[in-house]
Amino acid sequence: MTKAIFQTESSGFESGPIEELRSNHPEVTFKLFEPIAGPVQHVATVEVDRLVEFVSSAKDTGFAMFVDLCGVDYLRRDPRFEVVITLLSIDPPERLRIEVPVPAAAPVLPSISGIFAGANFYERETFDLFGIEFSDHPDLTRILLPDDWEGHPLRKDYSVGSVPVQFKEAYKTT
């Protein structure tokens, strides 16, 4: 069994939006993930306070399509959370993954829904399931769970234990 490799050096792309973005943002760490099958994946690790600037710069460089935004909870790691944004360039076809480490003490991120309108629902979902907040979001409410749900289920410390279900007819006898 061969293992897929993570590299820190660039390879493959001499020009194109990725290279342009790299030269414009020397402070951002770029990684390259080369799977056995499938296209290489570019991963940029961006700090929280530089996120909006970097995302709008990526949009101007050619990553015009918003694809995805999700959270990951690495429980015993510091920083605990990570928000992963996936952008796409149509021509040439390239994909960019932006990983934003988010500390557990203050899980707050600037919203990118001003840059990509499509991030709106995804940020609500991440807030709903992880409790990561997005400042300047137009309507940061729960989206998948009921409004009065307690807790954020996709956090690793949220139990999956079962709750005994009683039905409407089961009145209290006391």
């Binding site: 009921p146 009065d148 039905f167 409407k168 009145y171 209290k172």
Partner: peptide, 13 residues
């Protein structure tokens, strides 16, 4: 009237 645990979604809105 009921003891529904987590199902009381309208109790404290």
């Amino acid at each position: 009237a009921t003891d529904e645990g987590a199902q009381e979604i309208l109790s404290d809105l």
